[in-house]
Amino acid sequence: MNPQFLIDGLLTGSMIGLGAIGVTLTYSILRFSNFAHGDLMAWGTYATLLIVGAITALFGKVAPFSPLSFGWPLMLALALAMVVTGGLALLLDRILFSRLRAKGQMIIVVMASFGASMALRNMLEFLFTSRPAYFSRAIQIAMPVGFGLRITPDQIALLILTAVLVTLVHLIMTRSRIGREMRAVSQNPALARVAGIDVARVVRFTWLIGGALACVAGVMIGVLVQIRPLMGFDMLLPIFAAAILGGIGSVPGAVLGGLIIGLSEAAAVQIVGAEWRAAVAFLILMAVLFIRPIGLFGVKER
């Protein structure tokens, strides 16, 4: 087997892991699986694309940081789009999810997220058509890094970005006040409220983090593959599988689950062929549900 699958798997795994962090946080704090999460990724990517276009219109073509395929416009656009995507998630919660949550039937919220996912995705298809778009059409030469492995500068940059973001989120969750409050709400919302925690603030922060990371994951796909309205929805199954494999509510679990699924997918592409890639996540999901439904780092629900 060609060892190159390690690099491909690491990259796919990073995208899945970043998406899974959002899903696992929404699930553990708001207690529903958000089927619109993949479409937040796509919205974030298109927002980035639009902002890059606006910057190019204002400042003219900016030379990329050699040897990367992108320059400061993309980085600035990504930072802005992360805020926009977080805002979009907040807006969805305000007009839809929070009202249904108040009625108490969580599964209705799941259904609404499915409806919202359809609407969001087709809105993109209406605005941008289903034709794929690209951040850059430049072709990058993969450099050899030993052991027969090759990697492009873009890929290295995005892997570093993922590592930084994951560490940051982990530090926030374990060291900061808002992180402790988030964990408290996920373990026992009623008790957290009694202890004086502002649950509404925790909820807002959860959506912001989830939306921002979804945006990064989407832009990674956009830089390394292509931008399509379906790009996020197609990632939904691996993302859910990663969140469940890692254990609902666990950030390190979501990332590890993402990497495991990414690597398995990349290995499967070499063994059985690329067309069966999406089945890998499903097989892993079923195995977890049968053998250890609480996942690798999960805790039993009370």
Partner: peptide
Amino acid sequence: LKSDYLAITTFGVAVV
């Protein structure tokens, strides 16, 4: 398991 797992699994069935 929790009802969400059924939702996610049926979603996976449709994909497969």
